[in-house]
């Protein structure tokens, strides 16, 4: 066996053990623990942002900086693709 395969098997086994023990440390499915922030958003989204859609109010108003970073990533990905293929044309 070459060295790369041994390292890969080791990494795979370590991550497997870690994940299978961490499954049972999360809260059960359907009963989230800390819900104060989300309850506040659900209760106040119609008064504070005037929107019926809670997800859109989170995306564009409560967490607008996340969307700004995401738009930057999309922009840089398009710029990267155009830069990679810029010599192909004509």
């Amino acid at each position: 066996m070459e060295k790369r395969t041994i390292v890969a098997v080791l990494v795979f086994a370590i991550v497997a053990v870690f994940f299978f023990f961490s499954i049972f440390l999360i809260h059960p499915f359907g009963k989230p623990g800390q819900v104060n922030m989300d309850d506040h958003i659900i209760a106040n989204t119609q008064n504070e942002t005037g929107t019926n859609n809670g997800v859109t109010s989170v995306v564009f108003d409560y967490r607008g900086f996340d969307t700004l970073g995401e738009a930057t990533i999309l922009f840089s990905a398009v710029a990267g693709v155009l830069m990679i293929f810029r010599r192909v044309k004509q």
Partner: peptide, 25 residues
């Protein structure tokens, strides 16, 4: 523009709500 505040609870679809969110959309 888009400045109406909807009533709390289950409402109908009023297009003229939302503030800046339709512009950002």
């Amino acid at each position: 523009l888009f400045g109406t505040t909807p009533a709390t609870g289950s409402t109908g679809a009023d297009f003229n709500t939302g503030g800046v969110l339709p512009l950002m959309n």
